[in-house]
Computed example of a mutant assay.
Amino acid sequence: MESRFLGIGELVEAPTVAVVVDVMRAFTVAAWGFARGAEKIVLAESLDEALSLKARHPDWLALKDGPPAPGFDAVNSPGLLRSTDLGGRTVVQKTTAGTVGALAVKEASLVLCAGFVVAEATAEVLRTRECDSVTFVVTGEEGHADEDLACAQYIARRTTEAGTDAAEFLRRAGKSRAAAELAEGVRQGVHPDDVALCLELDRFPFAMVATLEDSLMVLRPHAVGGVTTLPRGTPRGR
């Protein structure tokens, strides 16, 4: 499998297969959202769009980066979200990097959103689809966030080398700038357990697939070997 690792700004055309990585914290939060019962997650292009969607669908839950804000129900923190009952709910998520990266590749045939918590399930989808070429979108720090790059490289290696050890990749992520900022309280809307939760390897047994549904980019869980399936008509990676 040929792997490319690009920042959002380096994307010049839609890849066939894209894995969008945001470890700290968008797609760790998304995974926790599904684990807490969310049916789907709508990836919003802006805070205004998130609030507009919430206004049209009052039963939806809106989530954003940073501190709490009027109109939003939650912040982008796995530690804070893990105690929230989301059974059957739709979540609207807008973050600084992760949702932006997913929307940047919305025309791809297959879009997976990932962090360490769903790494093996993501690799399994790539193996099953027999993808020859995969573009990993490293969303943080204009493509230089080491926690995202480490996770992307780990998933790429696991796709082709089942014996790859995660230890060094997790060490790099734990020493990243994002991890330090979360641990030191530089960022707002943070729980003390956020870094540890973001570094839990394979916490969840599902991958996360994003597709366009009625012009919205919608993220859903894909249980590897389970009943949840990829969208019909999704072409094989090439």
Rank of each mutant, 00 (worst) to 15 (best):
F169M: 01
F27Q: 04
L112N: 12
G9K: 12
A121V: 02
L47G: 13
L86Y: 03
A104V: 01
A102E: 11
L182P: 01
T234V: 14
G98V: 05
A38F: 11
F34R: 14
A123F: 04
P70G: 05
E168I: 00
A44W: 13
P67M: 09
A156C: 12
D59H: 13
P221G: 05
S83P: 02
P58C: 09
S3L: 06
F5E: 11
G101E: 11
D165K: 10
T164A: 08
E45F: 10
A102V: 02
S215P: 00
P192H: 14
E184S: 15
E10D: 15
G237E: 05
K54Y: 04
L86K: 13
K54A: 05
G189P: 03
L230R: 09
G101A: 06
V117D: 00
Q153P: 10
L197F: 01
A162C: 07
T16L: 11
V12M: 11
C131F: 06
V20D: 13
L103G: 13
R238W: 14
V118I: 06
E200I: 00
K40M: 06
V134P: 04
P235Q: 06
R177F: 03
L170G: 00
R236L: 08
K94S: 09
E147Q: 09
R157P: 00
G101W: 01
E200S: 01
G9C: 03
A102C: 14
A207N: 11
V227F: 09
G140K: 10
L103M: 08
A145Q: 12
E200K: 00
S109A: 12
E120P: 02
M208D: 11
G66S: 07
A44T: 05
E142F: 12
P67F: 05
